[in-house]
Design a binder for these strands. Sequence first.
RNA 1: GGCGGCUUAGCCAAGUAGCAAGGCGACGGUCUGCAAAACCGUUAUACUCGGGUGCAAAUCCCGAAGCCGCCUCCA
Length: 461
Amino acid sequence: MKLYNTLTRRKDEFEPLVPGKVGIYTCGPTVYMFSHIGNFRAYIFSDTLRRVMEYLGYEVKHVMNVTDVGHLTSDEDTGEDKLEKGAREEGKTPEEIARFYEQAFFDDAAKLNILKPHVVCRATDHISDMIELVRRIEANGYAYRTSVGLIFDTGKYPEYALLSRLNLAEQQAGARVAVDPERRNPSDFALWITNQPKHLMQWESPWGRGFPGWHVECSAMSIKYLGERFDIHTGGIDHIPVHHTNERAQNFAATGKEVVVRWMHNAFLVIGDARMGKSEGNLVTISELQERGVSPAGFRYLCQTALYRMPLNFTAESLQSAQNSLRGLVDFGRNAQAWPVNDAAWIEPFKQEFKDAVADDLNIPQGLAAVWSLVREGNQRQDRAAWEAILDFDRVLGLGLEQLAGAAAEVPSQVEELVAARERARKARDWAESDRLRNEISELGFLVEDTPAGARVKPRP
RNA sequence: GGCGGCUUAGCCAAGUAGCAAGGCGACGGUCUGCAAAACCGUUAUACUCGGGUGCAAAUCCCGAAGCCGCCUCCA
């Protein structure tokens, strides 16, 4: 299969380090507030990556962190920890806050059929691993001390700017943040932060009581669970210039290796003409989506209509379009369930088309074209084989089509009785009574379709 | 100021040289007691604009415009 690599800015053939196996690390949520659907686009992306890998026969180990400490609110590493700020505002301990939002995250993820990574690791459970990693970095001569704590010397790593393609010489130091005169280079960053007595979350370390820098946790935990060389690291495109650049520098400083073989980044969900973000004040959560009548699967479908590397326009219309498309697929499945499997041979070219598409840097939109070809052909042939193939594809799409079509087929007995009564009325050519019963059924939330084989009922869209 | 990205039909969105996937929506038709579903057909002589290189460009090169992101935690 082919995959894009941010480091080389090219799409090239994926070669796993260990044949048949793949290690994937995903930058997970910071659990101090509800995750929004923009965040979830990223996790749908990494989930899709995992699913495609598994679909193609790889054995995947997927690792994701949960950041429950260490991301600062204000500049210059002196600010209050986000979790602590949240804790103060809500009158709870940082742990309570973190656990609450972590649970909320995984609840929403489950609604979106995002498979739980094989390893989910909390930063606070890995402080000793982080200290050990920082110790290695310091021992290798990549760190120095200031009044803030231990600082990473980016000047020691010639490849520092490679991932982001930054032109450090042209960067305007201090353009947006005051320069720390103690730092050797403007891009230097904290590995361990001390002298912050107001922080609730602190640990003892060789550099004094304090807490780890922003980027240490991902380096420490990815190496711990996937080794000093692993296949893929994913995250949002915003992580390229700072977080992943720093992570990569730490990785090299600690191990002397290019730890991550391939970096993959998803583009943003765009609302109006802006990204969706808490700073922008245009957040939408999964719950709010549901209140607006859009199912999580509908949102997931929307995400699958665009390439992960392209910005995706999130509008009321695009969302409705996705929801309608999904309804069409479920309708097809519901109809197809009643058909026999005839001839599976005609399916093969479409299966190949789907497989080729998703193996080409996760081109799910192209894969969906194969799905719709199957819908059309399947309808013409009245062949359940098409639906079986689509269910097989759903291992990648993650829409939960089997359950959705199954749920659509569940009809209360009260409705069944009304349908039977309507059938009798129709046989008697009593159209007035027939239409009256149809309205009654409709009020109960169901829709009747008359087919040559008899009446069919489904939940009203 | 630096770096990165985007601009394809009413909307969403594939396609990175050889007659512009797919979905939604809309319209017309077949079927139906009427609907619904399904099927058939129509819906970009055209890919932001201007140059250039090719037999051939949405696709490569140069330039312009608009928009977005990152450079501060942020998917």
